[in-house]
Design a binder for these strands. Sequence first.
DNA 1: CCGAAAGTACGTCAGCTGTCAAACTTTGAT
DNA 2: ATCAAAGTTTGACAGCTGACGTACTTTCGG
Lengths: 113, 113
Amino acid sequence: MVTTQRNGQRDRVPPHPDLREIGLQQVLEAVVDPVRRRIVAELDAAAEDLACGTIDLPVSKSTATHHFHVLREAGLIRQYYRGTSRMNALRREEFEEAFPGLLGALRIERERG
Amino acid sequence: MVTTQRNGQRDRVPPHPDLREIGLQQVLEAVVDPVRRRIVAELDAAAEDLACGTIDLPVSKSTATHHFHVLREAGLIRQYYRGTSRMNALRREEFEEAFPGLLGALRIERERG
DNA sequence: CCGAAAGTACGTCAGCTGTCAAACTTTGAT
DNA sequence: ATCAAAGTTTGACAGCTGACGTACTTTCGG
């Protein structure tokens, strides 16, 4: 094993950036894409972590991978493997501390329709 | 004269959208550009409305015009003429009501450096 | 051991958009 | 009347990036 991992799951931990090293520019570039915002919204609404496949997106698998990558690089999500599935979790508290109010501002989309 | 204008100034009022008809997508596309975010920040920090020219930007005049246009279309600013100058004002309250927390989230950039 | 499942990596390609210069318009001053 | 100031409009162009297919890797089941 390599790093801290809550439950006894899998490794293959991709690099996760420190939120303090991420700028607003990068975050906005991440959330400006509707597909990525949908991913964020679903993770935000979900009770537990979600595998990439369980979030259905209007794009191909390879494109989906790309979007998850961008979100991870922008510090919005945490990823780890469980079996062949890659699990995703919103980095709520951390992100909220680094960019207060932003996640909340994005929630308005779900509030409407 | 044509429409309602606070002080006895000029017309040539460009079309301003109703905030209720603007989606988060459009807003994010507007603020994702650093030049536009800078405009918003300056208007946010200023006590009074600012002419385009008083906000110095690292782009040509025509490009600046384009950016102001995008911000107006996205409901972030209000524009009106005063002489040959085009004045700009942040649509604070309106915008805050439509997208609560978003302007605040953008302010973090100035808080840092 | 083999195959299916779940993603990843890579190369390509099309469309968007931020950029500029140049020509034009309007307004205020001289 | 002229001229300068302040923006706008109109192309044109370059770079980015979101999209895809294909090939590849890893893991779990039978």
